[in-house]
Design a protein around this nucleic acid. Structure first.
Lengths: 602, 602
DNA sequence: GTGTCGGCCGCAAGCCGACAA
DNA sequence: TTGTCGGCTTGCGGCCGACAC
């Protein structure tokens, strides 16, 4: 089993007797926690090794956590030992969350990975089979309008009532009983359970509306009943995934202000001190604490544009489903603050076309590749099958001493090449422009020269050398890119018709190296499809908050672009405003990314 | 007027248009804020100089803010410039609070004080007369059971309705109108105001219960209506002072975790950076940010045991009252962490005997001396009438360089003598025991020799010289005083009959210098009065968490003691266990202090 | 002058089976 | 099998003057 049940319960008692002044919320029932968290949640095991992704953590916290561009941000991924796992539930919302206590162990893990000595750690995550076998009788029902209306009670599905509730005396005319169920906080709720109506059905009447009101349940939310092996009834809720209104109030008020959280964690990482992560499994679509095995395995899989994959997800009726899609882009989400991060580095298109409802940026460990990579035009980037991990040493904590050629980094150097190929280092050129004094990627270019795209057909969008980047700088200045004061907060001004009059076409196959700039449309209006207004209503920004203000100079052209669900084929020519506008208005959900392929013509 | 009304309102608008991401709560209406805060609140003026008392701040935060004994705690009092004042109201509870932005200006203020150049700054606090003249028509009513019952509406006092509400057409049978009032957050509340019944009276009916429910008002809380000069109606609430349940949830969840707040402020003080203080005027019985003038004036008053004083307080019907009392003890509350702090250094007894309901420890600026100091046995400690302030340099930030005799500190040196006389440096001797390596007071003793008590009859409990303090150290060791690991958290073990068998008597008048140790009974059981159990149930600690474990050696005796509401007269002899136990069980409320007067016999 | 109560009214909470998807 | 509805009852929210302190 993943988590030692006894140890958790011991800690529960321990905290219960601790002084009140500590203000530690009590830990909650393990099974109920997992039932509320959903079937897909894999919680790291105490004592195991995980990969912590600060970028995902920041997204989880709601971005408000990072004030500005800080040089003391943590590296994009950190190997950590899980010192402690505590399960909690929000007092106000009943949302389940976990507190993970982590200690950075970068060097140790990296060394053992290189020595191949981390095989035993692959069992860090819970085996789901074991957990489901332990999971007792339970059911989960999404509430209907009738269930939440003040007009009546709760209609219990027949199977569920027979499975979880004590049996009724069906001889009687209208058999009934009182049910007592404890919620996540141990609070008892009493319901009148009656079997009546024509045809007969199970209902919860008296007591039900009080529960609905207190928990502020609405139709679409789900309740779950769980009968423990001791016969005790437990009761949890899973709220419907609602549109996030600005900042997540729960995380904010429960754990205090997020302001400076990441700075504090950064300090704890660099000094190997223990730090705590509050993780709300239902508010994030992608995990930012990954079991080591899952992480290394995902990086071992080859990633390529056009690659097909499947992913597990939780359907609306809380069942585990699978869906499939295709990778349509690979690149950094935030090359300014976290260059070479794997976090959501994949742009995907879903087969069922549910673009808006589902996340379109995934991390490699979110997906499982499907055998037949439909790669006629796919541009695959292979990786060593049994990669020994060494992270991109953009941060001093991870890097070897400058100029020192360590023999054990030969393999990792090759890995760097691959990663850079995946990451479209055009963004590095961007960094060189906005922050000319700091050129983090220069060092690595000099140490590991970029492979020639012609000799390495896998790399589709080859990197520019430093000289080319200087020339590119001139191009961008022609575009009047203004660095924002706070790169994390994009402008909110109206967009001055960015693409109108641009000649959009793909570069000829023999053209010189092109580059990829990532844009982030911040406000999209799907109603503007096909009209000229689509470009006005959707603001387009350079990643990091820089705004393209006007058309490029004549010596630069946008040769292509790619939206969330559409990447042009290599030879495809995309031309004119209309189509660009249409595409902008069409598939562009808030937060999705636009890849524009720019290059100077030969 | 104390606060520039215009500037506050400008800032309000400024913040309203600021991006939401900043998460700054909006500032609130100045008059309404003051109405809710109560008549006694004097808020420092922007730009003025104040004295900040970290010890009081810590108490305000609920003690949970300080983890352990830290050497980087701020000094006990810090001169600060008020950079900004913002008025807020808690979104959930409507509690008013202020955010003060302070910058430490110790040296500057100290210098100007010594030069006598701070006269102009005495107007730093608001003149209350001006404010009350500006204060518009308002009334405040404590809610009755009928007011808060679902059965009916709100009974408006006749004067109040005529004063604040628009006039009704009394010709009609049952004249009524709709009132619209804005609360602290600008939210509008609508009430039906009707004049009916036999005899006629003003009532708020429709809309009232919604307000009561939303604000979670209970009988005992107070509502206040305020009619602005523009005729606009405003509405505030003052909740009844309830028993604090552990930590103040409001401060904790509104401003994030308090953990480490003081450490951060300490850093800001030492580096002269701006820092913010959140101040909830209704949750603290004593201010920890004092206008400079009030502070210096209070230290200019002579303080003595037996001195009578008066103090303003807010009665239950929110009116301003005065009560009188007598000083029964003077000494440090926490000599371990904040030696020589003025915070709550006065132990008082109230004339009306309301020991339990009212704070029995006050700071000098809380009280106003009454002319006739009933000083037959009063032991007054005079101070220079026009004192130039220089603080006790226990902290390096305040102290002059060692060995450097600065001419401008001559006057301040004299002030030190006075302060030391007030502070019963017996606590310094304590420090010398628990932390032998740090003897903060030694430096000043050597520089400014303690005056002979015989030549200075004003000093009742004269300070010991360093040699005497060493001898005293031996005495205390004989008592087996064990320094606690965490002085902020007292032991909770049973009390091992501390006074049993002690001979308690006052020293003869001609005896050698005695000293005062302060004890803090932590758990008191008033039911044990007169029985032998009283000593067992009430734990007694040395202030700072040190515990007296056993009887003193025969060369030391407890010559007297004083409880919260009782200090023995100079010649009074208090003897035996029984009486000690009885007194312990009698007047000893949790948190009150026991002064035991110890000395070695001649 | 105002706190509390009984009387009274009306609405909506909430229990029921009918009916249909 | 179960979601929604109309019918029906009931409890309480809430407006009123009576009465008393």
């Amino acid at each position: 089993m993943g988590i030692d049940l006894n140890s958790v319960e011991e800690e529960e008692e321990e905290e219960a007797s601790a002084p009140v002044g500590l203000l530690q919320p009590p830990t909650v029932c393990l099974e109920l926690w997992h039932a509320c968290a959903g079937p897909l949640i894999l919680l790291p095991k105490k004592g195991s090794v995980v990969v912590y992704l600060p970028q995902g953590h920041l997204e989880h916290l709601g971005e408000s956590a990072a004030a500005a561009y800080r040089h003391d941000l943590p590296p994009p991924q950190v190997f950590c030992r899980v010192v402690d796992v505590k399960l909690h539930a929000d007092v106000n919302t009943d949302e389940v969350y976990a507190r993970l206590s982590l200690v950075a162990e970068n060097e140790e893990v990296e060394r053992r990975l290189n020595e191949g000595g981390m095989e035993g750690e692959d069992e860090a995550e819970e085996a789901e089979g074991e957990r489901s076998s332990v999971m007792p009788h339970m059911f989960c029902k999404t509430l209907t309008a009738s269930d939440t209306s003040t007009h009546g009670g709760f209609s219990v599905p027949r199977r569920a009532a027979e499975d979880c509730f004590p049996p009724l005396d069906y001889v009687q005319q209208r058999p009934s009983q009182e049910l007592v169920a404890k919620d996540l906080h141990g609070v008892e709720w009493r319901f009148r359970h009656i079997y009546r109506g024509q045809p007969r059905r199970h209902l919860l009447t008296t007591g039900w509306s009080a529960f609905v009101n207190k928990k502020k349940l609405v139709s679409g939310d789900a309740v779950l009943f769980l009968r423990g092996n001791d016969g005790e009834l437990r009761l949890g809720i899973r709220r419907a995934v609602q549109l996030k209104t600005g900042t997540p109030a729960g995380a904010l008020y429960t754990h205090g202000s997020n302001h400076g959280v990441l700075e504090a964690i950064s300090g704890a990482i660099s000094t190997k001190r223990e730090f705590q992560i509050y993780y709300n499994p239902r508010s994030s679509s992608s995990d930012f604490v990954i079991p080591l095995g899952k992480f290394t395995k995902s990086l071992g899989n080859p990633l390529s544009i056009g690659m097909r994959f499947k992913m597990r997800y939780e359907s609306e009726d809380s069942a585990e489903r699978r869906c499939t899609g295709m990778v349509t882009g690979i690149g950094d989400v935030d090359p300014m603050r976290w260059p070479s991060s794997k976090w959501r580095c994949l742009l995907v298109r879903w087969d069922d076309g549910l673009t808006s409802s589902r996340q379109n940026r995934l991390s490699p460990w979110d997906i499982e590749p499907i055998g037949n990579a439909s790669g006629s035009h796919a541009l695959s980037v292979p990786s060593s099958k049994r990669t020994k991990i060494c992270l991109h040493p953009a941060n001093a904590n991870f890097s070897a001493p400058h100029g020192a050629a360590r023999p054990d980094l030969v393999e990792s150097a090759r890995f760097h090449k691959v990663l850079q190929g995946q990451e479209f280092t055009g963004s590095h050129a961007l960094e060189g422009i906005t922050i000319p004094s700091s050129q983090p990627s220069t060092h690595f270019r000099s140490h590991h020269p970029i492979p020639n795209p012609n000799t390495n057909p896998h790399i589709t969008y080859p990197c520019m050398g430093f000289v080319e980047s200087l020339r590119f700088q001139k191009v961008l200045q022609g575009q009047e890119i203004y660095p924002a004061a706070y790169p994390t907060r994009p402008f909110h001004s109206a967009y001055p018709t960015p693409t109108r009059g641009y000649s959009l076409m793909m570069p000829p196959q023999a053209s010189s190296p092109s580059s990829v700039l990532m844009f982030q449309p911040n406000l999209c209006n799907s109603s503007g499809e096909g009209s000229n207004e689509s470009a006005e209503t959707g603001n387009v920004f350079l990643s990091g908050g820089n705004r393209v203000k006007e058309r490029p100079e004549k010596d630069c052209r946008l040769f292509g672009f790619s939206l969330t669900d559409r990447i042009p084929a290599r030879n495809e020519v995309v031309k004119g405003d209309g189509q660009m506008d249409k595409t902008l208005g069409h598939g562009c959900a808030t937060g999705s990314a636009l890849y524009a392929i720019c290059a100077t013509p030969l």
